[in-house]
Amino acid sequence: MSAVLQYTVQGLAAGSFYALAALGLAVIFGVLGVVNFAHGAFYMLGAVAAAVLLDTLGLSLWGALIVVPLLMLVFGMLVERLLVQWLLPLDPLYNLLLTFGLTLLLVDLVKRRYGVSGLPYERPSALSGRVEVGGVGLPVYQLFVIGVALLVCLGVWLLMTRTRVGMIVRAATERPELAGALGINVGRWVTPVFGFGVALAGLAGVLAAPFRAITAEMGSDFIIILFAVVVIGGLGSIVGAVVGGFLVGLVEAFGQAYAPTFAQVLIFVLMAVVVLARPAGLFGREEATA
């Protein structure tokens, strides 16, 4: 029983990274129709930025949780303005290639500047240690990660459902044709939404910094899992991204516990099953087929 509780917490903590990043991926796909291959690299940049800010300015995790997503927001908006927007009218494949190229570029730049061994990161002492829950010691940091992820997801959900901007973005994400038909100007929200999605990936990176190896390559496998998350949740679905993220985290943790060699395969088995049963994903909307 105690082991099950531990695996659950570990799964939800890993799922938090997936959920936050997948949320970003989902809004970007929804509004721009861009499959952002560079999302893993943005996640990596978030972690690297946190480590560099700690090393040079002494900015702790608390500060980094605010500052890094803001930096990534600006960076994301620049990427959209300078690069992504020019390819939007073309086949979506062009932006897939662009963001894939961007990944290679960012990874190599980080390698060149910071080497391959990874960067050190020390978390605030308030987040070290464990709390006893029912006789099981649960790491404070994992609970903190889950808490932050849930809060942010809730915040995004409120933003999407309770504000006009959110409603426009959601309409554009989930019913693009309809939103356009009703004369809603989606265009002006494209740049901020891309930046916002990138900022979420950066935030996931900051949260991962004390817990994962901070290397140039850390996003390379992450992005693959992330695609599985988005497919399971449903492309472009906001709730789907979050639920999919936590679900994949849990599958990974219990897979590692009970079928170690198949842990990663299980995620893709789940993906295959979902796609077979519900091609649009758990929360996706069926394409209107003629």
């Binding site: 890993a14 994962r212 190896a213």
Partner: peptide, 16 residues
């Protein structure tokens, strides 16, 4: 315990 290679999430392997 065999783990995939490369891998970034070892929490559960370690608990086990």
């Amino acid at each position: 315990i065999a783990t995939p290679f490369p891998n970034d999430n070892f929490a559960t392997y370690i608990t086990k």
